[in-house]
């Protein structure tokens, strides 16, 4: 056993990490990947079905996008409320988290959870724990990209 100093020096840490790594189960990488593929694929196929529904009712591919997003967010919220969405993500990983339904899950889950802390500092503030950064950096990135395109005259 190496002598402990605190914090332990880098060499000891590296040696220990090597020792510990031998005892860790290796991640079931392939299993995670195909499950993410299947769940993500199925959610997007469902989304495509919603788009087709709106297109069959007079929407164009462009105008069908916003109502489709709303329907998918509604479904993600409902599944979260029923307690099913976390099981879906446990199985499908990012296949459940990356679609917009997972974005809905990231808002609805804390909104349900932090009721006890009150409607303002609980529900109102905590619902953006994950979604807040997504919206903030999405807006910032879109601003930067949009500004660059505008200056380059690409947007005109």
């Amino acid at each position: 056993m190496p002598e402990a100093g605190n914090p332990t020096d880098k060499a000891t840490q590296t040696a220990y990490e090597k020792l510990a790594a031998r005892h860790r189960p290796t991640a079931p990488a392939w299993g995670n990947l195909w499950r993410a593929f299947v769940i993500g694929g199925l959610i997007c196929t469902a989304g495509q079905a919603v788009i087709s529904f709106f297109e069959a009712h007079g929407y164009t591919p462009t105008t069908a996008a916003p109502p489709t997003v709303v329907v998918m967010i509604g479904l993600g919220s409902l599944f979260t409320g029923m307690g099913w969405y976390d099981a879906l993500v446990t199985w499908g990983g990012m296949g459940g988290s990356l679609p917009i339904t997972g974005f809905a899950n990231s808002i609805v889950a804390p909104a349900m959870e932090y009721k006890r802390e009150g409607p303002v500092m609980g529900v109102g503030a905590k619902m953006f724990t994950v979604a807040g950064p997504v919206i903030a950096y999405g807006l910032a990135a879109a601003f930067v990209v949009g500004a660059v395109r505008w200056f380059l005259g690409l947007a005109a």
Partner: peptide
């Protein structure tokens, strides 16, 4: 549409579900 929907659904779910 997406942001407003998700906020409204979140608030509704906080009332409806545990």
């Amino acid at each position: 549409a997406g942001i407003k929907a998700v906020v409204l659904f979140g608030l509704a779910a906080s009332l409806a579900f545990h």
